[in-house]
Design a protein around this nucleic acid. Structure first.
Lengths: 181, 181
DNA sequence: CCTCCATCTGACCGATCGGTCAGGGTCTGA
DNA sequence: TCAGACCCTGACCGATCGGTCAGATGGAGG
């Protein structure tokens, strides 16, 4: 049962990502993950403090990029902020479509956990930037639909090459968003 | 504890709709619903065969309208089908935004239950019709993002009047979808 | 050889889940 | 007055959840 180079820690992450993406976070038990790895549930909890720790480690890279995007957006105003937000978010969605997919629909509750508290404010600023006119209802609606739609569906396009998906989403964003005068 | 005109059955439906919309289907226990109604969990299961029965009864009107829309779409081709699908789905989303919202993100698993099996095929046809060119990846992507985005976010616009929301979503759909030549 | 430490296991914990069941009120109509 | 339908309750069930714990295993270093 000796573990060589391939660390159990990483195997757990891979297995968890696969399960979370198919049955969701809450729909996946530690036992499921353990079974897929081929170890005991206790072994999973030896490598991770708890279930949430698996998710946060899984999401860490995507969250880092999201924070960087947030800072870039905040350095701009109006049309420039809108362009940066659209391009940045599309890029992020394409690169991390797997990670985003595994949050499918569990955003609302998961985001309320302290570990993800700041994500909520970031996404609010993202909507504002995408809308261009944050106080115009139709602009806000377009931005929110686009954001939710990309987040929710990008996991479906696992078979579309990165570059093609990015181009299609960017073109869609440009069409969907109301231009800032 | 005598029940007069306001039937417990309906109170359960109202309470369940409220809880499902805020914490999701799986995130809501029968105990939660019973507590909100002010009765025992056993009383809830007296009025409904099981938890799923509450959801199906809650969704029945929306599903009926969706099926009617499906038949209308199938009676058209190309640009006409695209227009019917866009207008029909926007209308449905606005009217039933509450019901759609309470499925937030749990679509994938819930749809696999036999009671919702046919919904999956309907939504596939809906995507095809919205895309216009079902075999063109960029058109499919736009249709899927729009469909997912509206489904996922329309519950957020509880304070926007029906007519204003419908107009905004319809304008967005026209911009987002690629026209059928 | 012995010790130490990282890794892992099976047994177990309390909580909660959806669901069942026997029985007790209460109202109604014969 | 009494039978029966309706509505509801508390107690209970087996399953599963996330998480804990004492101890077994096995390799590395002195």
């Amino acid at each position: 049962m000796a573990r060589m180079v391939p660390e159990t820690h990483d195997e757990i992450l891979v297995a968890a990502a696969r399960r979370f993406a198919t049955t969701g976070y809450r729909g996946t038990s530690l036992q499921d993950i353990a079974r897929e790895v081929g170890c005991s549930k206790a072994a999973v909890l030896y490598h991770f403090a708890n279930k949430e720790a698996i998710l946060t480690e899984l999401m860490a890279p995507a969250i880092g990029v999201l924070q960087a995007l947030d800072e870039r957006i905040r350095a701009h105003r109006g049309a420039a902020a809108q362009r940066v937000a659209a391009e940045g978010f599309v890029d992020l969605a394409v690169r991390f479509r797997r990670e985003i997919a595994l949050l499918r629909g569990e955003f609302p509750e998961l985001l309320q956990q302290p570990a993800f508290a700041h994500i909520q404010r970031i996404s609010e600023r993202l909507v504002d930037a995408l809308a261009g006119h944050p106080q115009r209802p139709s602009a806000r609606i377009a931005a929110l639909v686009l954001l939710a739609g990309i987040s929710e569906s990008c996991g479906e396009f696992a078979d579309v090459p990165d570059e093609e998906l990015r181009a299609a989403l960017l073109a869609l964003a440009r069409r969907a968003l109301e231009p800032v005068d």
